[in-house]
Design a protein around this nucleic acid. Structure first.
Lengths: 376, 376
DNA sequence: GAGCTCATTGAATCCTTTG
DNA sequence: TCAAAGGATTCAATGAGCT
């Protein structure tokens, strides 16, 4: 499933050349070899080795207190910002509308990355905290134990509302309460950590597969294409393959490419039925109230009530309902009688059955079943 | 102990004029009226520059009381950056060598603030996550629940190693393990939340005293001077007084100044020997079923049974479980197969081990061990 | 008082389809 | 492209009011 590609071999439009491959080369050059709007998700773990020690051209104290045009410009920060801008820009071009991007970092770099993302027009959806169960201690006792890393999740654009977020699945997985912005995972150790023949770790910052799994399960669908412009040891590729997603990786170092290739080849994809995710009412086909009348599930003249019988309305043949004062859709009338701006008529209105009240949403459910069978 | 001062009355060198006072006026102008290197700590809660579009309603149609105060409105990122740069620069001048600064923010502003701090020469020591026990939900189900805010803790300069960090006190308050960079506190509600005569909240974003207490206990000594350039409802002043620290506040709005003055006047300073118990940790919230998958305690595809093997379900990769008929959380599916309204999935579902059945609650117990170690 | 139900609320960048 | 309509969506605390 995984192969290394040279950039020259890529012809835009021929997906088979780069899909589920590792592109060897510079991050920006490799991204520029890909077609426009070709990936659904980007996960990026950029380098943050700022190496400020010794390279800092920091003014002396008196200069810092003075106000001039250059004193807050540090050569190394500038270089890092330029690098960040270049790859974020290249990444944005290959991201499909409706696609989102995840970037992980620490306090050394994440503020610069986040600011630049905003500057380039990315629209931040969440910052997410990876809380480490087993972080490295602070040996000198001069700071708090650095026990987390920060992820930024962003859409391509403020107007781009069509992104994938598997809300229902996340909620169900989290004991039926919303998934929060702070996640708890162990760091990557043990059997999961790639080692070379000498027992040395292959990559210094290998990310845990559980973290990538959470990300892919939250913000992609099966079959989506996931790009990792800093592929490293290939965690993104391994998890994508296991979860039935496609990947594209970019990496410069041969040693990482070799390790990642072998790692991904050994991955066994999960069965499809283990991958299906929960979807809520949003994903259900729309049913018009009038179709319940058409199919005989409810008849004109039926009286509808709210759950406490404070209000009532009568069903009319055209699919509207009417009180003594007004008529309109189930939603409009429901909102008006309550004095609200909006109302979900499906769950607000009920009909009498067997001495009790049943929401008309139950009739919609039945209507959908017959649609499925007919369409089946 | 607290008085309002006009800026004209401040003569550099006469500490008695501004110590334990609220300076009324613009943040930068007020800071410029203070002497060089006169404060030991700065806590800053600047405007977040929330860019809210329309109104937001809860599922029950009630309207969310948005933060749309004039002081949080900026025309552009450039305007916000210029504002940020100006106050960070003014703050840096009044900060003593060996002093540190805390800034709190959310993803809307914290990346810009952090990058600007680095640009100005501040040296970041930690970023700290305030995890909220009771954050506002995401009402539309379109993102992760925004359950934390970020604090940046920085020294005045990279070379400035003489800052105060009460490592041993922090460790002692955290069950004798190092204090981590993720802190758990409730938001400010109940009796602590300041209300006006109409029962309306005095300030839209009042911070909890526990958060300020942790900060002051970690990074100041008794008698130190704490500056808050966005004083608001005066939490910093109240906690400083209680903990035997001095404060200086800057605030523009009369209503906030009045409330803060009264609040601080009512504070009773603690005895020194009472101070150590203030910073303890809180209980950890639940373990989610998906975390068992994340940590490898259970794998997708595993079959779960009730204790008598009347029903079974398969674990899926997203943390839900599925029967032939339905899918959902361990609780929902457990309830449905039994025809009940509710079910504790943790005790209902079992997995096969060593020829017998073991409740998945046993796996939760194991997972909790690592969570507890990472807690607080 | 104890215990229960119900209403309220918090730094929020919070929708999608059709015509 | 824009306006209108459909209809989907919440967790932990606090406090009031009642039995």
């Amino acid at each position: 499933m995984s192969a290394v590609r040279s950039l020259q071999s890529i012809r835009p439009g021929d997906q088979s050349v780069w899909l589920n491959s590792i592109l060897k080369g510079d991050c920006v050059a490799a991204l520029n070899a890909l077609p426009d709007k070709c990936v659904d998700l980007i996960f990026a773990d950029p380098p943050y080795n700022l190496q400020l020690e010794g390279e800092l051209h920091r003014p002396d104290q008196s200069k810092v207190d003075a106000v001039n045009d250059h004193w807050d410009q540090f050569d190394s920060f500038e270089a890092y910002d330029a690098f960040t801008r270049a790859w974020l820009l290249a990444a944005r071009r290959v991201l499909k509308p409706g696609g989102t991007i995840w970037v992980i970092g620490s306090y050394h770099n994440i503020f610069r990355v986040g600011a630049k993302m905003q500057d380039l027009g990315y629209w931040i959806l969440n910052d997410v905290i990876w809380r480490k169960t087993n972080p490295m201690p602070n040996f000198r006792g001069r700071r708090f134990q650095n026990a987390h890393e920060t992820l930024i999740w962003a859409a391509k654009d403020q107007k781009d509302k069509g992104y994938t977020f598997n809300y229902e699945a996340m909620k169900a997985a989290n004991d039926d309460v919303q998934m929060r912005s702070d996640w708890l995972f162990p760091i990557c150790t043990g059997a999961e950590r790639l080692k070379d023949d000498n027992g040395e770790k292959v990559h210094p910052t290998q990310k845990p597969e559980a973290l990538l799994a959470r990300i892919l399960m939250a913000s992609t669908k099966p079959g989506d294409i996931v790009l990792d412009p800093f592929f490293g040891s290939g965690t993104t590729g391994a998890v994508a393959k296991r979860l039935g997603r496609n990947f594209v990786g970019v990496e410069r170092e041969d040693s990482y490419i070799d390790a990642a290739t072998a790692r991904i080849a050994a991955v066994q994809p999960l069965e499809l039925n283990e991958l299906s995710t929960l979807t809520g009412k949003r994903a259900e086909p729309r049913v018009a109230f009038v179709s319940l009348i058409d199919s005989g599930l409810i008849t004109p003249g039926t009286t509808l009530y709210d759950s406490r019988k404070r209000w009532s309305a009568k069903v009319r043949a055209d699919g509207t309902i009417a009180t003594a004062e007004m008529a309109g859709s189930i939603h409009k009338v429901g909102a008006t009688v309550q004095g609200l701006d909006a109302c979900n008529g499906w769950t607000f209105w009920h009909y009498e059955r067997a001495g009790g009240l049943t929401a008309i949403d139950e009739l919609r459910r039945i209507a959908r079943l017959s649609v499925e069978q007919a369409g089946g």
